[in-house]
């Protein structure tokens, strides 16, 4: 179970102005701007749930993910993930989670994908039997058998994303964070990735938290939506709750953003 209560997080960012004179000034004196990335955020996610976490850029999505995955310490509030405080007991906590950053790769670029997997096996101290079983299963479901022997740099984006997801699941995490997993993928790969996530959730009861701008992802995967804007949770409900008539999902979300002025 994931529980966030009254979590706040703000950053100090140095201001930069254009122009040479301004630049000279900045050398001696810097102005800071405080940005409230998260402002009293609370929610609970139960085991086995699939939650779509949406909101415009800079709304606080990635801060939330970073806090939940133990990368970031919040300024105030409490966070509990399966009984662990993520940022207090990092190593124990991250054993149980898998993270896919859609825009970044965790595979070693120049060696066959399987080599990266073997390294992950050692990093997560996965036993031989477990590793073999996970690998077999993931290879079959994600259709990786052709890909494992080629270096990551030679894979297409869609092929690579399938490998990325497999890499994040080798250690069988109970919670999976997906940060824009379908960004830039072609239609076929998108469907394959969605299908797999759905299956993973059903067979292993993996809790999935998904951030995305692709509303089809939300529509086909999640039953629950968390909308965040300006650092606050604006809405927590199901897709049907917000859908009015037979508008398309994109139109619905755009309408939603307009209503909340975000």
């Amino acid at each position: 179970m994931i529980a966030m209560e009254h979590v706040c997080k703000s950053y100090k960012i140095a201001k930069r102005n254009a122009g040479f004179v301004e630049a000279c000034k900045a050398l001696f004196h810097r102005e800071y701007e405080v940005i409230h990335a998260l402002n009293d955020v609370s929610f609970t996610i139960h085991d086995g749930e699939m939650v779509g976490y949406i909101g415009p850029n800079g709304a606080g999505k990635s801060s939330t993910i970073k806090i939940l995955s133990g990368i970031l310490t919040p300024d105030s509030g409490t966070v509990l993930v399966d009984g662990h405080v993520p940022y207090k007991n990092r190593i124990d906590h991250v054993r149980e989670i898998g993270v896919v950053f859609g825009q970044r790769s965790q595979l070693w670029w120049d060696v066959p994908v399987i080599d990266s997997f073997e390294l992950l096996k050692d990093i997560y101290s996965i036993s031989d039997a477990c590793y073999r079983q996970s690998l077999e299963e993931l290879t079959e479901l994600l259709n990786l058998s052709e890909l494992l022997r080629s270096p990551a740099r030679q894979l297409s984006l869609g092929q690579r994303m399938r490998c990325e997801i497999a890499a994040s699941l080798l250690h069988r995490p109970r919670i999976l964070f997906l940060d824009e997993p379908t960004i830039g993928l072609d239609a076929v790969s998108k469907l394959a990735v969605r299908d797999f996530i759905l299956r993973q959730n059903q067979t292993h009861k993996t809790t999935v938290i998904l951030t995305t701008h692709d509303m089809q992802d939300i529509e086909s995967l999640t039953s629950r939506i968390l909308l965040i804007g300006k650092g606050q949770i604006l809405m927590d409900g199901s897709l049907d709750d917000i859908k009015s008539g037979n508008e398309s999902i994109d139109a619905t979300i755009a309408e939603l953003y307009r209503t909340y002025h975000i």
Partner: peptide
Amino acid sequence: GEFDRVLVRP
């Protein structure tokens, strides 16, 4: 942001 990846590994 590669250091984030380091922090999510046990």
